[in-house]
Amino acid sequence: MTAFADAARLRDRLKTWALEAAYPLWWETGADHVKGGFFEKIDLDGQPVDGPRRGRVLPRQIFSYALAGELGWTGPWREAVAHGLAFYLKAYRRPDGLFRALVGPNGESLDDTADPYDQAFAMFALAAVAKALPDRKAEAKAIAVHVLEKLRAERKHPLGGFHQTNPPTTPLQSNPHMHLFEAMLAWNEVDDDPAWRALADEIGGLALTRFIHAASGQIREFFDLDWNPAPGVEGRICEPGHQFEWGWLLLRWGKLAGRDDAIAAALKMIEAGETHGVDLARGVAINALLDDYAIHDDSARLWPQTERIKASVLAAQITGEDRWWDMAAAGAEGLMTYLRTPVPGLWRDKYLPDETFVEEPAPASSFYHITCAIAEFDRAVSAHPAEG
């Protein structure tokens, strides 16, 4: 079987799992149809787990259901998007228009912090709403523009990007910028306001000039207040999942902006993640390396597996090289290891070095990673000449 045919077969299996098991379960059981929003977890017996709800999770669920129609789910995906959005705007939006970090099950504020990471997901979900529910686009854009303007007014870093806090504190982080990058690219696809592309260009440039460790080609995680690597081990941490995720975003931006340097850097970091960040015994990408490729954390969460798929299928499209389809197939096989649960449509999250999983409820936060990977996989396979 050719590399592409193998990948296409695995795409079919993942898509079937999403449409027949995951989407129905996370709407019927994972949505809180009484109080609003979505539960953070479903236990492995298929029962929702109530508790505090993070501000970064609900927008991921909104995005996942906004994508459901494109993937072919015939369930009430528009209703799911509207259901999530109603609770999000009611419970998480602060009086200043930014979004808080944590609420209780009844929507009461438990943590009013407005982290840039959470604002990125707010804008990302609003772009998904604008695409999925065109009649809500003007409303979604107005809210997203306000969030972006507040970040610029209160957190702007003179060298590019944003401070974590106001007043500034260390460490600065690349990860929130990755999701801001993702949000700006998402808005750029649905709206012609030049502000989205301008910030995408700024973050892309920051990644190429400040975030990448030159010798290894990997993206670093933590920095001082001048965008230099944070002192000690912290400044040396490079996560394979983020090499894939940043690589995927930089490939998209490089193609959009005509930046061959971004495409070259992206392919290098994806290659680094695959060569040094995958445990061949388990067939999965691990959590963290250091900048010399030494292993820092060899547990393996679910989300890096999804990013491995996204990076490889886009690399396959851009380069035309079959080896990336091999990587995509390996990534899909790795991901499916996490999806083998007693109740179809759930997943495990933490795969340990001894080849066992932590037994715990399935976290809703992973659904965005999974659905985004399946959608990207599906687009790439569908666009391949062999599928014509």
Rank of each mutant, 00 (worst) to 15 (best):
M1Q: 07
T2K: 08
R9T: 11
W17H: 12
P24S: 03
L25E: 02
A31M: 13
H33Q: 09
F39N: 02
D43W: 03
G46W: 03
R56E: 01
R56D: 01
Y65A: 10
Y65G: 05
L67Y: 05
E70I: 12
T74R: 13
W77N: 06
H83T: 09
Y88P: 08
K90R: 15
R93P: 12
R93W: 06
A101C: 08
G104M: 01
D118Y: 12
A120H: 09
A128V: 01
A130T: 00
A130E: 04
A130C: 01
K131Y: 09
D135Q: 11
I143L: 15
K150N: 09
R152V: 13
N166H: 12
P167Y: 06
P168W: 08
L172A: 00
P176H: 00
P176L: 06
E182V: 02
D192N: 12
D192C: 07
I203W: 02
A207D: 00
F211L: 14
F211C: 12
I212K: 04
Q218D: 03
L225C: 02
P229T: 05
G232D: 13
V233S: 13
G241W: 00
Q243F: 00
F244T: 10
G247M: 02
L249R: 01
L250G: 10
K255D: 15
R259M: 07
A265M: 12
E271V: 06
D279A: 13
D279R: 14
L280W: 13
G283D: 02
A288K: 08
L289S: 07
A294W: 03
A294M: 06
I295E: 01
H296T: 07
S299G: 14
A315F: 04
G320E: 02
M327Q: 14
A332M: 15
E333N: 11
L335P: 05
L335S: 04
L339R: 11
R340T: 14
W347K: 12
Y351G: 05
A364P: 01
F367Y: 04
I370T: 05
C372E: 01
A380N: 04
H384M: 08
